[in-house]
């Protein structure tokens, strides 16, 4: 037997599973979500032609970042929820785990496939968003130049600069990165729930439930501490709740980015760290549950 040759963790096996998961998801036409996103953007920019350019860019960013956040989150939950139950139902999991593949490798490979899909989707949506933003900036600059053709050059320069400032701000990139990391966290959470769930619907419902708790838990925690004075017991309880349910409000940078506010590095690093921490935590919990599961 080739026992001595066996490696407990193999990048080759994980990458085979990752590539297969990505192929599966793309051939299932999950990318149609992106088409919907494109239509939404194009439709909204036609509507915005009647607004001032500052309002237009603000609404465009608001809609685009909001749509990116919702679509990546939806994609993360829906794409992940079906993976494990489908493999179990079709018995393909038997053929995979009967090979020298550890259950941890199987889960890592599957999750990495979804994370790769989310990365490609986020990049494509970001590119589309940038293209629409550039197109609208180009149109706005042409309009300003035409309207101020008789104005002094300094005024024209200021007006052009105002359009440019309203279009891009450097915090768009960390904003989009955090949207991606939030989707990664949700994918990992969905994978964890699917390791003990019996149906896709159960997985999706529980994940959405945790998603909403995650969005209100920060506010609820503050309210609780104000009401109960922050005793040691309540702090421990809240600590446990905060550990199980991630504070998803920390990932909502969109409003600040749209308003043009600068995102402090510590805030970004905190959210990014939290996203990575929970993604790994849920993956480890998934492995713990899945390792003991009878197939």
């Amino acid at each position: 037997m080739k026992d001595s040759a066996h490696r407990a963790l193999s990048f080759g096996r994980i990458s085979a599973l990752t590539a297969n998961t990505l192929t599966e998801l793309t051939r299932l036409k999950v990318f149609y979500v992106l088409l919907l996103f494109a239509l939404l953007l194009i439709g909204s920019s036609a509507f915005m032609a009647r607004l001032s350019f500052q309002q237009e860019f603000q609404v465009l960013k608001d809609i685009s970042l909001g749509a990116m956040s919702i679509f990546t989150s939806l994609l993360a939950i829906v794409a992940t929820a079906r993976m494990l139950p489908q493999d179990l139902e079709d018995r393909t999991i038997y053929t995979i785990l009967a090979k020298p593949v550890a259950r941890f490798e199987y889960l890592v490979g599957k999750l990495a496939g979804v994370l790769l899909l989310l990365l490609i989707s986020t990049l494509l949506m970001a590119l589309l968003f940038a293209a629409v933003l550039f197109a609208r900036e180009y149109a706005a600059l042409a309009e300003v130049t035409r309207q101020m053709s008789s104005a002094p050059s300094e005024q024209l320069h200021d007006a052009v600069q105002a359009v440019r400032n309203a279009t891009f701000n450097p915090d768009l990139l960390p904003g989009i990165s955090i949207i991606y990391l939030k989707a990664c966290l949700l994918a990992s959470l969905t994978l964890f729930i699917s390791t003990f769930a019996t149906t896709n619907i159960f997985t999706i419902v529980v994940t959405v439930f945790v998603y909403f708790i995650g969005h209100i838990q920060g506010t609820a925690r503050e309210f609780w501490l104000q009401q109960n004075g922050g005793t040691a017991l309540s702090r421990i309880f809240l600590g446990v709740v905060a550990l199980v349910f991630p504070d998803l409000q920390l990932f909502d940078f969109a409003d600040d980015v749209v308003a043009g506010a600068s995102i402090p590095f510590t805030l970004f690093a905190n959210a990014a760290g939290l996203g990575c921490f929970y993604t790994v935590l849920y993956l480890l919990l998934s492995t713990a549950v899945f390792s003991g599961r009878e197939l």
Partner: peptide
């Protein structure tokens, strides 16, 4: 897991 290096399975 290592024992499966020498096994093939058809469910």
């Amino acid at each position: 897991v290592a024992s499966r290096e020498s096994v093939g399975f058809l469910p």
